[in-house]
């Protein structure tokens, strides 16, 4: 392990930097300022290193979409952000973070860095969950090699990039929509560890969902 970066799991990086505001004008100004800051910060490029050793460059704001990377950067307590750019690449120690996966992940965060941040406590989570993927995301995640696709999702999960995990999850769910259990197992290479009796029992219990006219 590279001792330089440690993973600080203590929360509290999200709210920092938002000064409390009293009225709508202040709110708007604060938002504007934050946006400009994010834009400036994204011009700073940092380096990420895959499990296989490949190094990829990525805008700072984009890289911070990974909560894990954001925490690591926070732990550095570097006030001069431009210095971050000259640092050693951040190592991503998980076997799912292959060169190919990291390249795709960087492509994704570079495209999405100016998305409004996801607020998990907000009630429109349900709406977002049901939202269809954008055309860009659909094309992005339509990967023929299933191993590579699973690497990307696992790597995004490891790096804690919620938005990308969501894209992968929706993609998989779209693919298996309307399929039978057998087809799903075949497609996703899942080993059926139920006995035929167990499977039949579940089928019976859930009969109502298969109800046809």
């Amino acid at each position: 392990m590279n001792g330089e970066y440690s993973l600080d799991t203590t929360e509290g990086m999200a709210a920092s930097g938002d000064p409390p505001t009293n009225n709508a004008v202040d709110d708007y100004d604060a938002e504007e300022a934050l946006e400009r800051q994010r834009e400036e910060e994204n011009k700073i490029k940092i380096k990420l290193k895959s499990f296989e050793g490949g190094v990829y460059e990525c805008g700072l704001t984009a890289a911070k979409m990974s909560v894990m990377v954001a925490n690591m950067l926070d732990a550095l307590q570097e006030t001069d952000l431009t210095k971050i750019a000259t640092r050693e690449p951040i190592p991503l120690q998980n076997d799912a973070v292959t060169n190919k996966a990291l390249e795709k992940i960087v492509e994704w965060v570079d495209h999405h860095w100016d998305d409004p941040p996801i607020d998990p406590d907000f009630d429109d989570e349900k709406e977002r969950r049901n939202e269809e993927l954008s055309h860009w995301d659909k094309q992005f995640i339509d990967i023929a090699d299933q191993g590579e696709l699973f690497d990307i999702i696992a790597a995004a999960n490891f790096m804690d990039i919620k938005g990308l995990v969501e894209v992968g999850a929706k993609h998989i769910c779209n693919k298996i929509k309307g399929k039978s259990c057998t087809e799903v197992r075949e497609m996703l290479k899942i080993h059926n560890d139920f006995t035929p009796e167990e499977e039949a029992a579940i089928h019976k219990e859930n009969e109502w969902i298969y109800a046809k006219d």
């Binding site: 999960n157 197992r185 899942i190």
Partner: peptide, 21 residues
């Protein structure tokens, strides 16, 4: 992670796919 992926299924599909594994 499996739970996260499957959380995007509709309730109906949850019941249908309960017996996958």
């Amino acid at each position: 992670l499996c739970g996260v992926i499957l959380s995007y299924l509709s309730l109906e599909e949850c019941f249908r796919f309960e017996c996958v594994s």
